[in-house]
Design a protein around this nucleic acid. Structure first.
Lengths: 130, 130
DNA sequence: AAGATGTATTGACAACCATCAATATAGTTC
DNA sequence: GAACTATATTGATGGTTGTCAATACATCTT
């Protein structure tokens, strides 16, 4: 039903019938957006999110050989996931002899949290926590 | 080089040589993790992150015909992205006549922010903001 | 009822991704 | 140097994803 015009195409009271007067908006795919997307993509996998959770919870570097046995995945696969996290700057590595220790790069996680958090309160995508 | 043993495999001073005494850790791929991953995956795309940013910044529902012209993508592609956001519960729709209005579901965004934020300060993945 | 318009769906295709087995690399111990 | 160990890389494979063109669906207007 809905018989009145069609209830205002936009909340603006200038009742147009044609729809879609464009709105100024931040540029698509700016490099800042792409940076955020890289971090979000790194987090958007169960294994990697779990690794990040492990690292955040322990607050100590973990060596690969300690991470691997927590998953039903081969060592090369874990190594691949660690590489993705590293390339997103979410983790940092330190080599001690034969072992490689991974630790969380908290500043990057903070940046994403504040960026997403800024969407909630700030009028635009400005930082709120950092 | 590095001639001393190999500089403690783990920070623990019980100097083992074999490496890898496993550590108790949260279960992989629990449904909570998978839920988070779904939301993060929805956000991990430039177009979708931009749409979410638009909706968050305006704090008003946007109709599809207002969203489409901001991207160099066809209407079906935008519709697909909106579907992904909807299935992650990140957005909510309201139909007014011929138009469909999308608005941000802030509670879901809040949940992700607090979940990721909890990793930074909480000892485990507990909420910090909610 | 007929045409017009906004949105969603379908099918196809290329690009990407997670995984594994096998192998390479780097460091350590004998 | 030779054997060994921890980690990284490579190549292959099946599954997922982003995009488009075409079409379907729903609703409004005449």
């Amino acid at each position: 039903m809905i018989t009145e015009k069609h209830q205002a195409p936009r909340p603006d009271p200038q009742a147009e019938t044609t729809c879609c007067s464009p709105i100024d908006m931040p540029d698509v795919a700016s490099s800042a957006v792409l940076d955020e997307v890289r971090v979000l993509s790194a987090l958007a996998d169960p294994t990697r999110l779990q690794i990040v959770t492990m690292l955040a919870g322990l607050d100590e570097p973990l060596c690969v050989c300690e991470i691997v046995p927590h998953f039903n995945l081969g060592q090369p696969t874990i190594s691949h996931h660690l590489r993705v996290l590293r390339e997103a700057s979410l983790v940092v590595t330190e080599k001690r002899g034969l072992w490689v220790y991974y630790s969380l790069n908290r500043s990057v996680l903070e940046r994403i949290v504040s960026s997403l958090g800024g969407l909630l309160s700030g009028s635009s995508a400005t930082a709120i926590l950092a």
